[in-house]
Simulated scan of single mutants.
Amino acid sequence: MTTLPPVPGPSSADEDGRRRHGEYKVPGGKLVVADLDVVDGVLAHVSISGDFFLEPDEALLDINRSLTGLPEDAGAADLAAAVTAALPEDAVLFGFSAGAVAIAVRRALAKATGWGDHHWNIIGPSVLPTHVNVALDEVLTEEVGAGRRNPTLRFWDWEEPSVVIGSFQSVRNEVHPDGVSRHGISVVRRISGGGAMFMEAGNCITYSLYLPQTLVDGISFADSYGFLDAWVMAALEKVGISAFYVPLNDIATEQGKIGGAAQKRLANGGMLHHVTMSYDIDADKMVEVLRIGKEKLSDKGTTSAKKRVDPLRRQTGLARSEIVAAMMEVFTERYGATPAELTEAELDAALQRVETKFGTTEWLHRVP
């Protein structure tokens, strides 16, 4: 295959006097670059380039022509469809895709963003009640969506033993009431979907990303998980763990599952992506508290819930705080993140949400 250099083409400044430029690095793949103008509300003088591979060479001109004349508000799916329709049947794309081209174009149009387009903050772990942690997830996602807070990575900490269930789970089906009572477990419902998490102080590493949805514009729901956690894989590699995603939302190593992710997208453009990874879980207590049925285990290729608990402590030999520190360091190096604190207003809003929503029986039992 041939590596294609940037293809020059006719260019003129668009109505506001600037040429639009967008870049997208395909995870595990190549860089796609889009340069274009906008004239009378449509794309003009489109030039796609990058370090990808494409055969035949002439297919690049087909891609450029397919995008020229499309409305500037075309969605990523429409852009990708136009590219796909224009490609010859024998075209081979290596290291990129029609969807990757669409993302680069959307970024050029400022409809989509990259990590480097934002000023990221990090909030380190501080001990808060579990109800407050889940309430903060809603509050901070709203704040980022409204533009009142920078996109933020926040690490959780807590003291009380808890079970955090997914937005669409039934308490009755997920927890053993006797085990919950015997072990003094606080049961809390979060705003994202996914499965239940058993959490005791120090036994998990949990973090939340609050981001604008423009960061995942054009990326499929399934692919957004790995995209948003690429930095985590690098951090785990740094502490000696080779991890990978098991679709849809599990993080695993060759020794088994170590974590799971969940997401929630809000109407105001904010998005929550959060992950819990096992550090040193009491497996016996977990199965006394959670109802982990055979059907759920069947697609994991195991018959024992205990085998699914593969703590980071055993695989790294490091203290939990050391792993968190490595994760914060990698995120900071990659994205230029700066430390931040929760504001008094955000904490007050979270406490109010606990009273009116997350701490209520109506919310906890909203699914029978």
Rank of each mutant, 00 (worst) to 15 (best):
S162I: 10
D73K: 15
I241L: 13
V309F: 03
G147R: 06
A34V: 14
T361C: 00
S126N: 13
A86P: 04
G259M: 08
T214P: 04
E200T: 07
D178S: 13
Y24H: 07
T302W: 11
R320S: 01
A337M: 07
L236H: 05
N203Y: 00
L4Q: 08
I122F: 02
K306V: 10
V287H: 03
D284E: 15
I241K: 12
T68Q: 02
R107D: 11
V216A: 09
D73R: 09
N121E: 06
H119C: 09
K296H: 09
Q213T: 15
G166L: 03
A100G: 02
L93N: 13
G270P: 08
S224Q: 01
D157K: 02
G147T: 13
M286Q: 14
L209R: 00
A305T: 09
P125G: 00
F168S: 13
V287R: 13
G184K: 15
S278R: 09
Q213P: 01
D280N: 06
S298Y: 01
A85T: 05
G293M: 10
G41M: 09
K296L: 08
F155S: 06
G114K: 08
L215W: 08
F198G: 03
L140H: 00
A222W: 00
H273C: 11
R366K: 13
T343S: 13
Y225D: 04
G116Y: 02
E333H: 10
Y279T: 12
T3N: 13
F227T: 11
P177T: 15
A201N: 15
E346F: 02
G259C: 04
A82I: 02
T206D: 11
R320I: 01
A337E: 08
V32C: 05
D223L: 07
